[in-house]
């Protein structure tokens, strides 16, 4: 099997050597098992740090925002979609960005592995698309990678980058019939009281660390609505009313823009199901406007356009 990490290194080296980019943003091995970490490479001699495997979870599009350098960035399917959204919204200058696309078969949610292993701590791990070999004090296990992928990956229909300058490796088959709204449909089938209880429980543990917002490439506002102080629109405490309004308004702001990369859910230290609210907004946009964020480079942002035949049913009469 082709070592995609190696191919990625070759592309990165060439880009740096030929002076096409000032900086490569990719992934390197993290400091704990089953983790990668974003890596910033400016010298061609350092490209051997670059890796590619199912631990490469971060959406690196975040690092393209607010930078003047010419950047070569590694992008999975979902990451490339977020680049498309940022391009459409004028946040990224296409001429400054070289996209090193990589087909992806899903990234690991290590919290699922931790839950499975309970108190057995992984000391060493090797990871590929098929299996995760873990070893710790007094145990050794081989886990099938597909059982521990992020929820977003399990129902992903865009595993191949939608935009790229270089493609590392062969395209992987798309899972066209994946139902990525299954969880939303389940929640929709509940009573509103049940749903309220569910979100009260989930969002009740929010600690307002804003990891969800800060890892999100779509959250590029210079000043977030919750940070505004003149006037202060929203409460800043961890009381439920304050945390809930933050998450609800954030879900609104992401409607028609979120590409379900899953970065926020992975970043949340309290393991809140942040995906449900966003997927609901995504589903409404899909049903009303037949629009999927970041899948078409030519298309304008759905909420930034008006068509005569747009669905009007959301207008309160």
């Amino acid at each position: 099997m082709e070592d995609l990490g190696k191919t990625m290194q070759d592309v990165a080296r060439r880009l740096l050597e030929e002076g096409k980019v000032d900086l490569i943003v990719g992934y390197e091995k993290g400091t704990t098992p089953i983790r990668s970490t974003p890596c910033f490479i400016r010298e061609a001699g350092d490209v051997q740090k670059l890796i590619w495997d199912p631990t490469c979870e971060a959406n690196l599009t975040k690092y393209l925002l607010d930078r003047d350098e010419r950047i070569g960035v590694v992008a999975k399917g979902c990451d490339s979609r977020s680049i498309v959204v940022c391009l459409a919204e004028g946040q990224i200058d296409r001429d400054r960005v070289t996209i090193i696309g990589v087909p992806c078969q899903g990234v690991i949610n290590r919290k699922k592995i931790e839950a499975e292993l309970d108190k057995q701590e992984v000391v060493e791990a090797t990871v590929n698309d098929e299996e995760i070999k873990v070893r710790g004090e007094g145990f050794e296990k081989v886990l099938p990678t597909t059982n521990y992928l992020c929820d977003s990956c399990l129902s992903c229909r865009h595993r191949n980058p939608v935009i790229y300058d270089f493609l590392v490796g062969e395209k992987v088959p798309e899972v066209e019939d994946a139902n990525d709204f299954a969880e939303v449909e389940e929640l929709e089938s509940r009573s509103s009281e049940d749903r309220w209880d569910y979100f009260t429980e989930e969002l009740g543990s929010c600690i307002r660390c804003y990891a969800c917002r800060n890892v999100c490439p779509m959250c590029y506002c210079k000043e977030c609505f919750v940070d505004e102080t003149m006037p202060q629109w929203f409460g800043k405490t961890d009381d439920l009313s304050d945390t809930m309004i933050f998450h609800i308004v954030r879900a609104y702001h992401l409607a028609g823009r979120c590409v379900d990369c899953g970065a926020c859910s992975r970043a949340c230290p309290m393991e809140i199901n942040l995906r449900a609210l966003r997927k609901k907004a995504e589903k409404i946009v899909k049903e009303r406007f037949d629009y999927e964020a970041g899948t078409d480079v030519e298309e304008a942002p759905v909420l930034g356009t008006f068509k005569q035949d747009d669905s009007q049913e959301y207008i309160i009469k």
Binding site: T37, P38, C39, F40, K62, Y63, I207, R208, C209, Y210, A211, R213, N214, V215, G235, K236, T237, A267, P269
Partner: peptide
């Protein structure tokens, strides 16, 4: 310059930190 590059500026480290005590004061 190098250390902060990948930091996304969230509050996970501080809010989970047993020795971080900084606070803000608001009137509600």
């Amino acid at each position: 310059e190098g250390i902060h590059q990948k930091c996304i500026g969230c509050g996970v480290c501080s809010f989970l930190c047993p020795t971080c005590w900084c606070f803000d004061v608001l009137d509600e």
